[in-house]
Design a protein around this nucleic acid. Structure first.
Lengths: 229, 229
DNA sequence: GCGATTTGTTACGCAGTCGTGACGTGCGTA
DNA sequence: TACGCACGTCACGACTGCGTAACAAATCGC
């Protein structure tokens, strides 16, 4: 459940197989395609946590896939790592400008790629890398599925857990109800916006400490945010 | 069951005999072959706990055996130690990238190899190295197949033993029913997910102490975890 | 200050999940 | 052959957590 989902877009079948099984060995959930259009389709129906994107692929070019991933709402913030045979500086610049998060030049060792993926995930979504996130006096351990506040264990439901994790992955940032529904409930869920309010309340109740201020901030007509450090 | 099973793939007969003899002396269960294809066959029919793989063998090359071991689901996570006469750096890199866990250059002393095997097993599967694992007031002795809680011996079935061992190898971590089936029953077993529940119950019943809290934690809609330290 | 909008809070029915006991089967042993 | 043991499956019941609606409170624009 907590396995990070990778989408590998690569038309060198041998390389794709190698990368795929190495990442599986590392506990990742990998899906592979050699076609740019199919990549966009796969990404849309089940948002991956990170995209490994070959620069030169059939169908659509890498830069175009990158651009269109960014344009789509549900995949706009998914980190992308570009794989390219050309060590051309232009490519690198264009890739990063298009919104890629990192850039690996072929030939690369799977070990290096795994390290890069780990680094990007740790930076963007620490919980996916299996690391305990800490915000203020809150701590969330994704592998143990456990939340503590000031060291004290907290009883929390599954939805509240995911909600809190999302907040803790982006501390201080304000999310609208719609954004929270997309991120926590999954995009395409037919849930009333007001339902978020109820879960916010349940979350507040769960992590409340008498006397201490509420770490969940309401931003009127905008949404909610977790009080940053 | 408690003796770690090694698969030795080596075409130097004299060396193979020596290694086999020494490891048997250390309490390992060793099977030997000089052929890559046969190695894959042996590994498939009875998954070993570790593979010692000569880099240059007849039939299939070492790197190919390595790759195909990883591709097969049941052997994908078996640790591999490469034995090679060439101290070539390229080999070393390629071996590790293909998924080997360690690398020993010929000529090596049996003593060194035994140490390396022990180190890898301890890292990957502590219980296989014959070490008693302790989590809280639970202790599990893999060689004696015995479990104690607060010093008191506990009667426990084979499946519950493997289940508890897996939990104790990763204390605190939450496992889904599917993950537990893969880890305890073996991947590819056609077992109902709910069957896990029943064995969890039997495990709980076996290790229960009246008055003491249940060390097995249910994480709703996620799985089960053993209460860490 | 007053109406309108937004948010907090509570209660409730429902679906999904989990615990538990019972049952049938296969296998090794006495 | 009879027995015991461990296993996998099922069915039932209890419970938890979910989503929604309805009402109360707070905040904003005027």
């Amino acid at each position: 459940m907590s396995a990070p989902k990778l989408l590998l877009v690569e038309d060198d079948t041998a390389l794709a197989e190698l990368v795929e099984y190495r990442f599986r060995g590392e506990g990742y959930d990998v899906r592979t395609t050699d076609d740019g259009d199919e990549a966009l389709l796969l990404a849309a129906e089940d948002t991956p946590d990170l995209v490994l994107l070959d620069w030169m692929i059939g169908g659509t070019s890498g830069i175009e896939v990158c651009r269109r991933l960014r344009r789509n709402k549900s995949t706009a913030h998914v980190p992308i790592i570009i794989l390219t045979a050309r060590s051309d500086e232009d490519d690198r610049v264009r890739g990063l400008e298009t919104g890629a998060d990192d850039y690996v030049t072929k030939p690369f060792s799977p070990r290096e790629l795994i390290a890069r993926v780990g680094a990007v995930l740790r930076r963007v979504r620490p919980a996916l890398a299996g690391e305990t996130i800490t915000v203020g006096d809150l701590a969330l351990d994704p592998t143990a599925h456990r939340v503590t506040r000031s060291g004290q264990a907290i009883k929390i439901g599954p939805t509240e857990f995911r909600l809190l994790r999302h907040f803790m992955e982006h501390p201080g940032r304000v999310f609208s109800r719609g954004q929270l529904l997309d991120a926590v409930w999954g995009s395409g869920s037919d849930i009333e916006l007001r339902t978020v309010d109820v879960h916010i309340r349940r979350l507040r109740q769960a992590i409340a400490i008498p006397g201490a201020p509420d770490p969940v901030r309401t931003v009127r007509s905008a949404g909610y945010a977790l009080e940053g450090v």
